[in-house]
Design a protein around this nucleic acid. Structure first.
Ligand code: FES
Ligand code: FES
Lengths: 141, 141
DNA sequence: TATAAACCTGACCAAAATAGTCAAGTATCA
DNA sequence: TGATACTTGACTATTTTGGTCAGGTTTATA
């Protein structure tokens, strides 16, 4: 099980951005430089974040992105969902009644993976962007 | 984040096998047929499980595999470890002091991913093969 | 003792997913 | 009217995954 860069970068960029929340828009170029993420790749990611209304864009000189909601109300779940970083543990289609082995019953481990998925999602549901910024700030003291 | 088939199959096969624990060795051919997993692939997986002393092989006609430890003492962690299904959430090398961005400090989200990794591993540490067999048996009643 | 069942090993490969790059815009502010 | 920054879509190289294939060796038993 590995986390993909897309999800990792999305959160990283948003934490960077959230630090300036309410102060000024942050350009992707700045984030790219500070966090060492390819600018082109960031653009892909922010396009998705904008569509899911997590950030808002400000065009023109001195433009950039700002949060579209309060940091406290943006959960990791929302971020991952926006960039299509899905937690997928089962092999079968969830709504189908067929198992991953093609048989008519779910496989021996289906329940287990389903539990695991819930367990992981719990973690994502709890953490907000605000938590992350704060933790990060404290660490620097 | 997705679970790979290798890990999924390893657990599935072991649950199948554990049901006959103490009765007779179980051949990979049988597991292959019952669980719909390629025999060749199973052999790769069991080769690893044997090296990590999770199963023992019984050669010859009527041979197969048996558990090498009590089902209660085989945790998901052990299984995943044996087949190299690693939980990897951070990008950087864990022991290095450098961050994933090449800088000398860990990135803004390093701590978060580390927490996530612990959270997932907790789940794997708790579940034993014995638990799985029992859950499965109960479900069938 | 022959033979079939089963384990064992390593090399190989195709498809999918990932992690980007590249090119060509459009909008807006100073 | 330039410079800055967002916007979009297509394209691609690399890596990972999920296997297959070929050619063994070992051992129980008929
Ligand atoms: S994972 Fe759902 S049936 Fe196997
Ligand atoms: S994940 Fe460890 S430094 Fe970024």
């Amino acid at each position: 099980m590995r986390l993909t860069s897309k999800g990792r970068y999305a959160v990283m960029a948003l934490v960077d951005l959230a630090r300036f929340d309410g102060i000024n828009p942050v350009s992707l170029r700045d984030i790219s430089l500070r966090q060492g993420i390819s600018l082109d790749y960031l653009e892909q990611i922010f396009s998705k974040l904008r569509k899911k209304e997590i950030v808002q864009s400000v065009r023109g000189t001195q433009g950039g992105y700002v949060l579209n909601r309060k940091a406290k109300e943006i959960k990791l779940t929302n971020i991952f969902d926006a960039v299509d970083e899905k937690v997928k543990t089962v092999q079968c289609k969830k709504d189908s009644k067929k198992g991953c082995n093609g048989k008519s019953t779910k496989c021996l481990t289906h329940n287990l993976w389903d539990e695991l998925e819930t367990h992981i999602n719990n973690f994502f549901d709890k953490k907000s962007l605000d938590d992350l910024v704060k933790e990060n700030f404290e660490r620097r003291l």
